[in-house]
């Protein structure tokens, strides 16, 4: 890994951690209390982690087999690893959204949505700029610059899942009335 890429990766990780810390503070209903989940949420989240774990195992196995089979790799290692991690996170988050255990009892869903929207838009803008400069694919291979594109897609899918779940809940509530 060259110095430029290493610095970019470290900066990305630090920025991600800072954003997560800020998000965890500002999305709370009561800042003094922790994020707490009730017994049903804990059980459902456990199921979500299980599916995320198996997703990562299957992805890693498939990634290894495909990498061995191809004469030329389809992606640089960091991007290949990041796709797997984001895929597993996505499985967990979408499962939790669908089973109504993603938001803790001390969390404001609207603030979380706004935060996700901002993160998604920022990453889309960076990915578009990189795409216009031809930095996403080089020699027919996904480059390490794809991190923003992957994060943008992940948050886009999460927002879509939240919107679909919201619509389904609204329909169910209207039927019950």
């Amino acid at each position: 890994m060259n110095g430029y890429l290493l610095a970019g990766t470290i900066t990305g990780v630090v920025v991600g951690l800072v954003i997560a810390a800020v998000a965890m503070t500002f999305t709370k209903k009561n800042r003094k209390e922790k994020f707490t989940y009730d017994e049903r949420q804990k059980t459902a989240r456990g199921e979500g982690y299980k599916y995320a774990f198996f997703t990562l195992v299957i992805y890693n196995a498939a990634y290894g087999i495909i990498d061995m089979s191809l004469t030329k790799p389809w992606t640089e290692n960091m991007t290949g690893m990041m796709i797997g991690v984001c895929l597993a996170i996505l499985v967990h988050v979408v499962y939790c959204i669908w089973h109504e255990c993603y938001f803790s009892m001390n969390e404001e869903p609207v603030k979380v949505l706004a935060f996700f929207g901002i993160i998604s838009v920022i990453n889309v803008i960076i990915a578009v700029i990189q795409g216009l400069h031809g930095e996403l694919i080089e020699n027919g291979m996904l480059t390490n610059n794809c991190a923003n594109l992957i994060v943008a897609v992940m948050f886009g899918v999460i927002l879509f899942a939240l919107a679909v779940k919201g619509y389904v809940k609204k329909e169910a509530a209207e039927e019950e009335e």
Binding site: Y37, D38, E39, R40, Q41, E100, C101, M105
Partner: peptide, 22 residues
């Protein structure tokens, strides 16, 4: 009772079996 609204809804709908404590 210290749970989320969704959990009470799930119990009423029969989608979740609460623990004896709840």
């Amino acid at each position: 009772v210290g749970v989320s609204r969704q959990t009470i809804n799930a119990i009423e709908k029969g989608d979740y079996n609460p623990t004896i404590n709840l």
